[in-house]
Design a protein around this nucleic acid. Structure first.
Lengths: 310, 310
DNA sequence: TCTAATGAAAGGTTTTTCCTATCATAAATA
DNA sequence: TATTTATGATAGGAAAAACCTTTCATTAGA
């Protein structure tokens, strides 16, 4: 067997130093002295027989190899941390702070109604919530920046387990003055040529809207992309066009039905599917699954009329 | 960030102790004294707040939790080792001993013609070869017991990357006295009712033969399962029935075409696909791929007439 | 020029890890 | 039954590793 003459401590030092690009600042975060950090990093480099950093005036830079090994190192450190998690878990039950990533087109309109109940059910569990675009969420989950993500499908990463929770319908929203505003339902054909506003391209929701426009021959206004669903709503107010908006957003943000009008499309089921996802390798698999079930339960309680459970 | 007050050393001690079920013997393998080992394990247990071992007269036993955490611990230690591998790799090129798992119905008839060339191409690389049934190979690969496996597809594990290398035709082999022995090719319909010998059920090759028998309405002799392809061949000698045998086996082991007769089935392409596979997480991805290409190259050189490259 | 920030080096202290020797216990053996 | 052999635990001390403080040389910026 190998000698394995490196320590987790060194690996963590390595990661923190790489993050700060400064040994002094990294040492401060690690609450050790800079020389100690220097020494440990040098030791690590010696054992690996590799230069990880390029020491320059004004900081350190990762060498190409150093950059490459960051991935492996993160994996190793995460794996070790997950042992601690699993052990705590076994003794104290669900405990600890979980890094939860969530899509900006989903989180603000669902989590506020879910998390309070979760707090009651799992009092010792805390969530550190961060919003990001789904593609970044998946990357972040895979690389260990998140423990869990709550995001629309698809999630195409074989290293990630996704647990579909529910379908969220998508509706067409127009200004009350719009010609279509006198209908409750419209036929797909009535969408033809309609001006449609969409969120910025890097959002996941954009792709859905784009495909809808293509399918129904509606006209996607690419010059006025909104930076958030709220921005889209504002633009619909200003009669710049109609918009596809997800049901949870509509339920939570659109109250004055006088100024905005919500339409569904006949005979077409338009929805996105949201899932809770985690790394396959996580030892907390069972807990995550039961957490997903609890999410479902709460969503069902609060949004029975709005979404379709899976 | 977490304190991460455990060390890789402790984790390795834990694994070795779990393997030996005896602290003294584990200490011997680790080349430390037994009290040192005891102390480190106790320390690990204290930090984790968990009992890993049950100390009894006559050895140690893993607690249920200790058994569970073995998985995570192995993962962490492997991850750390892969950092070392990747670093060595970057400086010294392909180096080290790789644990190569191979199917018993493939390895003996292909590796002897491949590995010598590999040794010339990558002189600093050594292979520790072990034969096992493909399902065990996949498990072993996933859990880090192997670095690489050379095995027939399918390999259905999302954590594993499989690189298909070539197709290996499968032929029907009968005794020279058999009525079918006067043909070179036969029609699928001629297989109907034929007695077919197969390898033991837990082998991967059994499933292929079983499905072939079903497809061609041949009669699978389940009472006389062979423990190896050679055993099957012996039984064909003894006129107990025909057998489906893979091309590489036939080429390497069946020389005397007088006593055994090899038949192919007209208009039917019967083959299995062999792949080289490794963990997705391995940092040596690129090397493994080029190794796969080298395998292909050698196989093409030696078995151009026998197999179909991919 | 002066200041502030960088990483490296030297020497000493603290902490951790390990070893030897010893013990108590229990199972196998004579 | 007495003896031997194996188990892990304990105590005390030695060796190694990690760390700290102080100091230095260099460089970028004010």
């Amino acid at each position: 067997m190998k000698d394995l003459n490196i320590s987790l401590k060194q690996l963590r030092y390595y990661l923190v130093a790489a993050k700060h690009k400064s040994l002094r600042q990294a040492a401060k975060e690690l609450r050790i002295s800079q020389p100690s950090l220097s020494a440990q990093l040098k030791l690590l480099e010696d054992v690996l027989g590799v230069d990880l950093f390029e020491r320059t005036r004004g900081g350190v830079t990762l060498t190409p190899l150093g950059r490459k090994l960051i991935t492996e190192t993160t994996a190793a450190v995460n794996a070790a941390e997950s042992i601690i998690d699993a052990a705590n878990f076994a003794t104290k039950g669900p405990t600890g702070t979980f890094k939860l990533g969530v899509s900006p087109s989903l989180g603000p309109y669902s989590l506020p109604w879910i998390l309070p109940a979760v707090r009651l059910e799992f009092p010792k569990v805390k969530f550190f919530v961060r919003e990001e675009v789904p593609s970044s969420l998946v990357d972040g989950l895979a690389s260990g920046n998140y423990d869990l993500i709550f995001s629309p499908l698809p999630i195409d990463d074989p290293a990630i387990t996704a647990m579909p929770l529910f379908r969220e319908p998508v509706f067409l929203v127009v200004n009350a003055n719009h010609p279509l505003a006198r209908f409750e339902n419209i036929k797909a054909s009535q969408l033809s040529g309609l001006d449609i506003l969409a969120i910025e391209e890097h959002h996941h929701f954009f792709k859905l809207v784009e495909s809808l426009c293509q399918r129904f021959h509606a006209h996607l206004l690419r010059d006025y992309e909104g930076s958030s669903l709220d921005a889209i709503r504002q633009m619909v107010y200003m009669e710049m066009g109609g918009a596809f908006l997800p049901a949870l957003y509509i339920k939570s943000e659109i109250r004055d039905r006088d100024e905005l009008h919500v339409l569904s499309i006949e005979d077409e089921s338009i929805y996105r599917v949201h899932a809770l996802a985690w790394r396959n390798t996580s030892p907390l698999h069972d807990f995550y699954r039961s957490l997903g079930e609890f999410f479902q339960q709460e969503i069902k309680k609060q949004f029975k009329q709005t979404v379709i459970m899976m």
